[in-house]
């Protein structure tokens, strides 16, 4: 019991990290908002909040895959905008939805290949990808507009017995992600690879016979695909393609992942932590909105939060 408590509070000797703090923070914000804001604690408002948070939750889950193996994907924001632009081209959903996943997988594949085979630092690889994808998106759709398939709009806007549909999609996505991260050999291997990288023995899992490069590559592909899914959500919500909708999404996703107790050096983290982290971000946004804080200041506050959360993590490596 004592050991379990210690693990929960310090995150030491635990592979799930300090997610418990995120839960406490989330609860604290809920209590604070419940006391200060009228009609905050209604089921309608809470469901909406979760529905609002869906794209971030999904993106953060994808980001977590690469963070677990000590990487980072700065191209997810561009992938999200790109996805909305593709969906808004007006092609039938039967083609465009598989299409965006295929394209996202290609982007992830290039990121992953650059990192694993061509020895490029993940940050540089995904940063340049961010620019390339953003450029293509702006050519496709210089300003917001276009026609998003009706089925996408209905899937995001509708509700079932008063519960918004995104909540259902969210549950499905989280279940799938749980299977990938905590319920498969692949997920376990991601933790193992990240653990090796974080302790400076990059070769460790390879010596155990794990195909580490292939797994890292798949993590990048997965990350892009989750971003594409988030893009589909957003396209349904804004009912158009928008080259700027994904702007700074990568930063929010990294913040959510870090709040949830995932170590950016790799090998430590949890899905529930990430989901809670994303909800904390959504709750904060909700609270700041109801307190009438300017959008610009909100951005600045998010930056400060990122600095605080990541600044509290300790790692051996210096620099990038």
């Amino acid at each position: 019991m004592n050991r379990t408590m210690k693990r929960l509070l310090t995150g030491k000797d635990s592979r799930q990290g300090r997610w418990f703090f995120a839960l406490l923070i989330a609860l604290a914000i809920i209590v604070w908002l419940g006391l200060t804001t009228e009609r905050f604690l209604t089921s309608e408002n809470l469901f909406n909040l979760v529905a609002q948070a869906m794209p971030l939750i999904i993106t953060a889950i994808g980001m977590m895959l690469v963070v677990l193996v000590g990487g980072l994907d700065l191209s997810v924001g561009s992938v999200i905008s790109f996805t909305t632009a593709i969906l808004a081209l007006g092609a039938p959903a039967l083609i465009s939805i598989p299409g965006v996943f295929a394209l996202a997988a290609c982007i992830g594949l290039i990121n992953g290949l650059a990192v694993t085979r061509l020895n490029v630092h993940p940050i540089i690889a995904t940063l340049s990808m961010q620019f390339i994808v953003l450029g293509i998106t702006r050519i496709l759709r210089p300003v917001s507009g276009g026609d998003v398939p009706q089925i996408v709009i209905d899937a995001v806007a509708g509700s079932f017995y008063g519960i918004p549909l995104p909540v259902f999609w969210g549950i499905v996505t989280v279940l799938i992600a749980w299977k990938i991260i905590h319920g498969s050999r692949f997920g376990l291997h991601l933790f193992a690879i990240g653990g090796g990288i974080a302790s400076g023995t990059d070769e460790a899992t390879h010596n155990f016979g794990v195909a580490d490069k292939q797994k890292i590559l798949l993590a990048y592909v997965g990350c892009s695909c989750f971003a594409a899914l988030a893009g589909i959500f957003l396209a349904g919500r804004i009912v158009s393609g928008d080259p700027n909708v994904g702007l700074l999404f990568e930063m929010d996703a990294i913040t959510a992942v870090a709040i949830g107790g995932t170590q950016l050096s790799g090998g430590v983290g949890s899905l529930h932590g990430t989901v809670i982290g994303a909800l904390v971000m959504a709750l904060l946004a909700n609270g700041m909105n109801s307190a009438n804080i300017s959008a610009f200041v909100q951005t600045a506050i998010k930056g400060v939060i990122l600095l605080l959360v990541v600044g509290l993590q300790s790692r051996k490596k210096m620099g990038l």
Partner: peptide
């Protein structure tokens, strides 16, 4: 690997699986 349990280390790379690929 320090962030894995003893059993996970022992079976790393050749984990037995149940249905649906669960470890």
């Amino acid at each position: 690997l320090a962030n894995l349990t003893i059993a996970e280390n022992m079976f790393l790379g050749r984990e037995p699986t149940l249905r649906f690929g669960t470890v």
